[in-house]
Structure formats: structure tokens, C-alpha cells
């Protein structure tokens, strides 16, 4: 048996990168993507909760008030831009850093995302450390 925690959630390690874990909400309409990001972040010791639509993500963020939000842009109900705008308008959530993680690569999309107050814009595919480092940076955990 290898080291680790066999009974724990996939990705939970005995010696994670962050000793003081922070909490992140991941919003993406592709369940496989949410699951993969969850595993990547959990391994670093980040506490992750996932949502599969824009509306669900916004509700989850309002309820959980996480330390950061990882947000896809293209979702069927309301898109990531709209979720970000709502979060930034809400005084309870406006301080939460938002990082867009999306397959939209055009400069105009990046500029639009950042203009809405997002702290980061990462395009798919990305390296796990790229996202983890950005989260650490925006949450002051590094």
C-alpha cells in the first residue's frame, strides 16, 4: 500500500502543499472538468466545492463565501462574465478573487474578463501548477 489516505477523497494527500488550506469554488458546466480541477487543487491541499452551471456557481459562492472562485465562461444558463459581474456587484462577494479558466483564447475575451474585475484568466489546457500558483497568489497563501 502506497502512502496517502486511501479512504479520503481523490487527491487528498497526507502532506499537501498548503498547510493552511483555503477554500475554492469551481464553476464549469462540464462535470469531468470540475472533477479534474477538484483533484488538481485537492492534492495541493485546497478545499474545493464544484458547481455545474452559472446560476449554481453564483449561489454556491454566495453561500460558501470561498477564498477564490474558478470560473468557466461558456455555460448554458448564464455565462461566466455574468456570474463575475453579479459577484462583483454583491458587497458580500465583491472581494472574492475570480479566476477565469476557459477555452476562449482570444485577446478580446481576456480583456473583457479582466475588465469585469477578475484577477486571472487561464486558458485550457493548463498545467495544474499554473492554476494553483495563481490561486495562491490571489489568496495571499503563497
Amino acid at each position: 500500500m502506497s502512502p496517502g489516505v486511501p479512504q479520503g477523497k481523490l487527491g487528498e494527500l497526507a502532506e499537501p502543499r498548503f498547510k493552511n488550506p483555503f477554500r475554492v469554488v469551481v464553476v464549469d458546466d462540464d462535470p469531468e472538468m470540475v472533477k479534474a480541477i477538484e483533484v488538481m487543487l485537492r492534492i495541493a491541499g485546497i478545499d474545493v466545492k464544484g458547481a455545474f452551471s452559472g446560476v449554481a456557481g453564483y449561489m454556491l459562492a454566495r453561500r460558501e463565501l470561498p477564498d477564490a472562485i474558478v470560473l468557466d465562461i461558456m455555460m448554458p444558463d448564464i455565462d461566466g462574465y455574468e456570474v463575475c459581474r453579479k459577484l462583483k456587484l454583491n458587497p458580500n462577494t465583491s472581494h472574492i478573487p475570480v479566476i477565469f479558466v476557459t477555452a476562449r483564447t482570444g485577446q478580446e475575451h481576456i480583456e473583457r474578463g479582466l475588465s469585469l474585475g477578475a484577477q486571472g484568466y487561464i486558458t485550457k489546457p493548463f498545467k495544474p501548477d499554473e492554476l494553483i500558483d495563481k490561486l495562491a497568489e490571489v489568496t495571499g497563501s503563497s
Binding site: 502512502p3 496517502g4 486511501p6 494527500l13 483533484v39 492534492i43
Partner: peptide, 17 residues
Amino acid sequence: GYAMTLEQHNSELSEEH
């Protein structure tokens, strides 16, 4: 994402994971 996770944390992960 999974492949890099495996690459970086292979020894730390349980066989099941």
C-alpha cells in the same frame, strides 16, 4: 491535469487513487 498530477504526486497517492 490528471497526468501531471500523477507525474508530480505519484509516490504520495494511494494505489486506489
